[in-house]
Write a protein that binds this DNA or RNA. Sequence first.
DNA 1: TCTGGGGTCCTAGGACCC
DNA 2: TCTGGGGTCCTAGGACCC
Length: 435
Amino acid sequence: MSNSPLSQPMFALVDVNNFYVSCERAFNPNLINRSVVVLSNNDSCTVARSHEVQALGVKMGTPWFKLKDLAKQHHIIALSSNYTLYGDMSDRVMTILRDFSPHVEVYSIDERFLDLQGLNKFWSTPMDMGQSIRQRIRQWTSLPVCVGFGITKTLAKLANHIAKKPPEFNGVCDLASMPSAQLEALLSVLEVDEVWSVGRQLSQHLNAAGISTVKALRDTPSSCLRTKFGVVVERLGYELRGVSCLALEEVSAPRKQIISSRSFGQLVNSLPELSEAVASYMSSAAEKLRHQHSVCNAIQVFIQTNPFRQHDKQYSNSMTVPLPNASGDIRLLIRAALFGLKCIYRQGYAYKKTGVILSCIDSAAKQQESLFELYGAGDRSARLMCVLDQINQRYGRDTLSVFSTGKRKSWAMHRGKVSPCYTTNWNDVPIAYAH
DNA sequence: TCTGGGGTCCTAGGACCC
DNA sequence: TCTGGGGTCCTAGGACCC
C-alpha cells in the first residue's frame, strides 16, 4: 500500500498564465518582458494582459480607448486577437497533458482538469508531478502554466489560484497534502470571492451573512447554506470540505445553444445591413451546428443599440422563431432568422449589435421525436400503455422502456438513453388500443 | 469617436390544465 | 357559476464562468 497522496481521489487544474499574451510571445520573443495586451473584436476591449500590464492596474475588459494615454506612457503593445493560433496552442497543451493522465477535461481554452486517482506509482508527490508538467509544457510550447491540486475540482481550482501568487509556491500548489495549520491559515485570509462560482452578487450576500473568508464558507453547515443561498452554494460547501460533487467531464457534451453575434465597428441603421450581418452570423452558427451533428429547433435573433451612448434613443429586442421540424438546413435557418429580424426591426435607431442564438438538439433525438410524434404522446395515463405497445410492436420489444409524460414535453427512455419528445395530438392514438 | 463573445445553470412568474 | 389548490411547461432574466 502506498501512502502517496495520489492514491487518494485527486484532481489537478492546469492553467496557462495570460494565455493569449503567452501565445503571442511564443511566436514573437520580442514581446517577452514587454507590456502587452490582446484586444477583442474591432480592437475594442482588452481580453488578455501581460503581468506588466496587470501591475499597472489595468482590469480585464477595459476598453482600449481608455488605455491609450497609459499605453503611450508605458509603451504598451496592443495586438489584435488571433483565435486560430490560440486554439492550436490549446490543442498542443492538451496533447502534452494526456501523457500525464488519460483522463483530461477541457474546461476552457486555457484550462484543463486532470483526474489523477491511481497514478501514484509514477510520482512521489503531486508537487513533483506539477513541476514536471510545468517544465514540459514550457519546453515544448514555451507557454507558462500553473498547476493546482485538490481532492475536488473546486479545491484544485482554488489551489491553482493560490499557485499563481509568487514566489513561494513556484507555480504549483497542493492543498491536499498541505499541513493543516498552514491550510487553515491560508483559507482564513482568502476572501470568499476567490472561490470558483462565487461572483460579485453572491460574495456580497455571503459577506452580509458574515461569511467573508473561504474558511468561513467551508465551515458553515450545509443546511444553513441550503436555506440561505440555495443548492449551488450548498454543493460548493461540500466541494470545499472535500466531498466531490463535480465529476470530470472528459467527453464534452454537444452544445445546447450556439451563439453567433458581433458588435458593429460603426453603427448600422438599415434593415438590409442588419440582414446581411444576421445571415453571415447564421452561416457560421450553422457550421458549428453541423459539426456537432445537431439540428436546430428554435432560433433567437436579437438587435440592440449602443447602451453606452446614453443620449441616443435606445432600443433592444429579440424574437424566438420556433422550427416545428428541427433542421440543419442553412437556407431554412437563414430564412427563419431574417423573418425574426424583420419582426423586431424598427426604423430610426442606430444599431450596435445583432446576433443569433440557436437551440440545438441531437440529430438522433430528432429522429426519436418524429417517431413519437407519429404516435402522439400526452398526459393521459389510460392511454400510456397502448402507446408503448404500439411502438414496441412496430419497432421491436423494448424499443421504449420508460415513458414519462408531461402536457407538452415528455421524456422517454429509448435504448438506455433519455430523450425529450414533444406532444402533438394525443387523440391521434386509435381508441381501440386504449383497452 | 472608440465599451467583447460564447457558454451554463437556476429561479420566478405567467399560462394552462385538471 | 364561482372558487381553489396543485401540477407542468415555457420563457425571460440574472448570475456566473472563461
